[in-house]
Design a binder for these strands. Structure first.
Lengths: 107, 107
DNA sequence: GAAATATGCAACTCTGGAGTTGCATCGCTC
DNA sequence: GAGCGATGCAACTCCAGAGTTGCATATTTC
């Protein structure tokens, strides 16, 4: 189970947010496919993907020669919970969030 | 207006989350008061507070010799919006969030 | 089986974040 | 006004993150 640290740290990089965004739109993609759209080396993109995977936001599935990265929800839970808990205290707008997420992740 | 980068980066540090948490519970506190509860120098805590303030999550108000830090909501908006936008795409649970935040911050 | 393409690994540089220490400055209080 | 307690500033160390390059390995395809 990935920690809140890693999730927020992963989301703090614009390239990584863009990667998540792109994959969430276009579905599973390989590192090489993704790398084409960014002004950096394939290896740099791979590192970002690894970071995201480590944070529980992506997962890579090997398919023969390729590895396709898809979005997963594992990492979001704790970070969202934290934002909810503290956010609720200082912003009434987020209080509603608490009430709507809580039922789903009660246990 | 603080960027999403800074907000997530600010939240990625456990000490900073703890500071936010503490201030959101106990109300406005000074750097010296806060520093007592952490295993680091006052200056280190001040740096964290400055980072949080820069991200739009805290604001310091001078009162004579003291500076009291209180929680503000400025920074949360964009980060929450991003989480909502992308999160919606990959987790139905977060879709509700979108619907409840949108009315308040619909430009 | 050989060429082409994709991933994996390792070493390297560079920059910024986290924390420290020392000292200066400002405001309160007696 | 003198001392005390708080903040502010600056310089310094240390380390992890971001990106690079080069090469090795695996898999597809002809």
């Amino acid at each position: 189970m990935p920690g809140v640290d890693e999730v927020f740290a992963a989301l703090s990089d614009p390239t990584r947010r863009q990667l998540l965004d792109q994959i969430s739109r276009q579905g599973p993609l390989t590192a090489t496919q993704l790398a084409g759209g960014y002004p950096m080396s394939r290896q740099a993109v791979v590192k970002h993907l690894t970071t995201l995977a480590h944070a529980g936001l992506l997962a890579g599935e090997r398919q023969g020669r390729d590895v396709r990265y898809r979005v997963v929800t594992d990492g979001l839970g704790d970070a969202a919970a934290w934002l909810t808990e503290v956010g609720e205290r200082w912003d009434q707008r987020l209080a509603a969030l608490q009430r709507h997420l809580a039922p789903d992740r009660s246990t």
